[in-house]
Design a protein around this nucleic acid. Structure first.
Lengths: 137, 137
DNA sequence: TTAAATTCTAGTAATTATGTAGAATTTATA
DNA sequence: TATAAATTCTACATAATTACTAGAATTTAA
């Protein structure tokens, strides 16, 4: 399941993607438009900025805007930024790999192989969903 | 990600699937064989029993055994029993559906459609992984 | 009757999720 | 240059969930 943070991030990106080119959106505007708690959204937007999905203009008349094409922002990336691994266990993860603490040896782990198959399928599906594909829905 | 509970459940089922037909496994035996905290495993086995994956014999010389074919126990079922929805949000779930609290109307939710596509792909992959497929690895 | 197992009902400790508060900083413009 | 209005930063709060543990009750074979 997605955390609220990841869900709100997606909704904020959708909001930004629907604005006119060159439009700068204030946090409060996004919060009200997408129904997200404003103070929570502040943090999320900073995370999205650190992830190079959006950028900001500070000070009066400042706000946020997309810096990555809505065609290039995938659900997989947002999931990884906010919720971490897409795989079902760390030992089956590409980006968040960690060995199982409770497996004697990795080759003996009967779960890993199957979970990597799932990861590949899910990842492929998540990479196919972009902000653009969601906007036009 | 899978909870420890779900992971332990899978490992316990794998352990049971590897035993001889008609063999009854004590909790302590499974716990040591699969490296699972014993008291925690007790609860998990009861959940698996309530889910009709295993059954038990009480009293001295009692223990647990599979009652469902290892070919018919899928990762999807175990995920749902211990970790709930496979979909990324409740509004996109088949078995754990709930409307979004923060969406004005369901048809206006731009996330739902995309998340249902992911759910279908992931579910299909998870239904393809059975205990039998994991045992032979 | 006893030993050895499951089953049941609580409880607990640590972690994570979901926010909020408030001050500091930045910037446009009057 | 002062001010208003925005982002940014640091810290905290609180509730829920996760991952267990404790111990008594029940069941059953011998």
């Amino acid at each position: 399941m997605l955390s609220h943070k990841a869900k709100y991030a997606l909704k904020a990106l959708l909001y930004l993607a629907e604005q006119d080119e060159n439009h700068i959106s204030k946090t409060i505007e996004i919060a009200e438009g997408a129904n997200i708690p404003k103070k929570f959204l502040e943090q999320i937007l900073l995370d999205l900025k650190r992830g190079h999905f959006v950028s900001s203009k500070q000070g009066k008349y400042g706000g946020y805007y997309l810096i990555k094409s809505k065609n290039d922002i995938t659900l997989a990336e947002i999931h990884r930024l906010f919720d971490g691994a897409i795989a079902l266990l760390p030992c089956a993860s590409l980006n968040f790999y960690e060995p199982c603490s409770d497996c004697k040896t990795e080759s003996e782990c009967h779960l890993r192989h199957g979970l990597m198959l799932i990861r590949d399928k899910t990842l492929q599906a998540m990479q196919g969903i972009t902000i653009a594909s969601l906007v036009q829905k």
